[in-house]
Design a binder for these strands. Structure first.
Lengths: 285, 285
DNA sequence: GTTCCGCATGAATCGATAG
DNA sequence: ACTATCGATTCATGCGGAA
């Protein structure tokens, strides 16, 4: 039986984060209000002031994160007057200057994204999921997110050519050799950096920034049971709910009282801890 | 019978491009040598000097492109010493400063990339396909890349409810509404900005940058028959080959004699022009 | 119980028109 | 000329009630 805590705090992250100890968090996973979005609730930070607004928060995040920890940031720029805004690019550059390592950019491909087509553009059906780290020696539990081998194996591995069966160093000089036949015996393979989750379509509940699968995937990948997860822009509480269910300690912060109430209700309902099907599957491996 | 030309030129794009007329190209689609890649062939431009190296080329591209034309740039930063390099982000900002509009970022999802991983990252299975324009009034032939509607339509549209027949505004106050009955006769719908093309097999002795489907898709979307396509980093000649097959005039430039020879052979083999199945379908619309 | 089917909903953007 | 408001456009998903 795990003994975890799930804290939900009301207030401005720039202040509340100061109460958290140095080097105490294993994973930060969050989706802050995007520039000029969520005007009704968060007031809508303009693209011009966005980086300036975000840096004091990320400064605290850098302090509270363990050297082995990871910061996952889900964000997207908007298109306006025919152009994509560059504030997210500028944010990445500013975060590096602040001391973060920009380790990876995952793509969240939203299969059921908002409809809409315009004379000069199609639907924007993806978002950036940026990974930042404090050091190069961060914890990563890759086995935890392995996926069943799919069509790739069925089609590709049926007929292995001679060159496929020996170690086949690519001629193009990538230096990455593959030994295809090793994959034959496996039923699970590692995923790539393109993630396909559906967006949340809440008919009754309040809308959430990201689907449960998103924090779940990163919590699996970057933490173990009893680790500490932080979401400084909790919203309706998805991260806290998932962390609790997965037996991780967590702290969630939001500035909107209604959201904090909603999040508290969510975590109170659950008889923690129990693990998801995929999680328990992993534990058996 | 179309009467198109397909030019393959040997030399440095920074020089050769000067021979092309102002405002004469409808589409530039290219995959330049990535920083520190293809060292054996292109000499490997370092990440530090990449932007500086690229800007004289893009200055010429800006000159030769028609005001209604589009510049498609397939590029991806590499991971270096555990970090993603920021030179592509800096290039986007520099191109805007040069006068380009950053219109869109498509994601090329390489679904069939080999499984593989490193201790601290997974397989990188996507690339950026950046769209730049000279003006906001560029040509876009969206019907040319429509895709079949999803299965849901069969069930969904069988019986229309009362709200389906009228405009139904979203409750969230976003102003977003829908009128389902508009979709009744729809068999084809518009795609999103996430593209899924297979990767090319590198079993030839050159580093093929992108599969035929990539230039084909953008040539369909941004040009008509008899328009002018340009690839200033032609490589093995994929863009020229596809443009010729689709009845577009084209100019391809590369600095490597072997590549130019290879490209010339490719375009000589073809009895031009003939159109792809999808292309001829579009022409009937 | 299990499958089927109706239905509500969502981090949107552009062009035209009005102030 | 510049800003504000309004109308048009569009798909996939999960829930819950019906069959």
């Amino acid at each position: 039986m795990h003994n975890i805590t799930t804290k939900i705090l009301l207030g401005d992250s720039r202040e509340i984060l100061k109460e958290i100890d140095n080097n105490s968090i294993d994973l930060i996973v969050t989706s802050p209000p995007y520039a000029d979005r969520r005007k009704n609730t968060y007031g809508g930070i303009s693209t011009k002031e966005y980086v300036e607004w975000f840096l004091p928060v990320s400064e605290q995040l850098l302090r509270v994160l363990k050297p082995t920890g990871t910061f996952i940031l889900n964000i997207k720029e908007k298109a306006e007057n025919g152009e994509r805004n560059t504030y997210v690019l500028e944010l990445i550059l500013a975060l590096r200057k602040q001391g973060w390592l920009w380790t990876e950019e995952f793509i969240w491909h939203k299969k059921n994204s908002y409809p809409g087509k315009w004379p000069n553009r199609f639907r924007d059906s993806w978002e950036r999921v940026l990974q930042f780290n404090k050091t190069r020696n961060f914890n990563m539990y890759q086995e935890a997110v392995m996926v069943p081998v799919g069509d790739w194996a069925n089609n590709r591995l049926k007929n292995l050519s001679k060159t496929d069966k020996i170690r086949d160093n690519s001629k193009s000089g990538s230096g990455f050799g593959k030994n295809i036949s090793n994959w034959l015996k496996r039923s699970m393979v590692y995923p790539s950096n393109v993630l396909q989750f559906a967006t949340v379509c809440n008919n009754q509940n309040h809308s959430a920034a990201f689907p449960k699968e998103l924090p779940e995937w990163f919590i699996k990948l970057f933490t173990k049971v009893n680790d500490f997860v932080l979401d400084p822009f909790l919203g309706s509480g998805t991260t806290s709910e998932v962390a609790q269910r997965m037996g991780r300690n967590s702290i969630g912060i939001d500035i909107i009282p209604e959201y904090v109430e909603m999040a508290k209700k969510k975590i109170a309902q659950k008889s923690y801890p129990y693990l998801t099907i995929t999680e328990s599957l992993y534990e058996k491996i």
